[in-house]
Simulated scan of single mutants.
Amino acid sequence: MRIVVTGGTGQLGKAFASLAHLYTGQMFILGSRDMDVTIERQVIDVFNQILPDVVIHAGAYTAVDAAETAQDEAFRLICLVPVTLLLLV
């Protein structure tokens, strides 16, 4: 089974990376430099290459204070990206 973990450079993504050696299948830990989850074409291209069976979305909007002024961006990352990932798997 192929598992993609987004947010690979964040706290949760790093936790998955530290456990990846225990998994007998293939686990791909992706940071934003590997795949920008806000760019649908990029997600499609990466998913077409990896063909994941499971996606664990560990990416997060971490600029909490900025979320008040950048509400559209925060909404997109928190609400719309997970739906897009779900539809593309």
Rank of each mutant, 00 (worst) to 15 (best):
I39N: 14
G7F: 02
M35A: 11
R33P: 14
F75K: 14
C79N: 09
T69E: 10
D65Y: 05
H57I: 09
V37R: 00
Q26E: 06
V83C: 07
I39F: 06
T9R: 14
Q42N: 10
D72M: 06
D45Y: 00
L80G: 01
I50A: 05
M35Y: 06
V43H: 00
V64Q: 02
T6P: 03
V37L: 03
D45L: 02
V37F: 00
L77Y: 10
Q26A: 05
Q26Y: 03
R76W: 15
D34R: 11
I29V: 07
M35S: 08
I3K: 04
K14P: 07
F28R: 07
V81N: 01
A20W: 00
L80F: 13
I44V: 13
Q26H: 09
Y61G: 04
A17R: 11
T6F: 04
I50S: 04
K14V: 09
D53Y: 03
N48Q: 11
A70Y: 02
A17L: 13
A70G: 10
G10Y: 10
L86Y: 12
V46G: 15
V54P: 00
G31N: 14
K14I: 12
E73V: 07
I44N: 05
V46K: 13
H57G: 00
A66N: 03
R41G: 15
N48W: 00
T24H: 05
S32H: 09
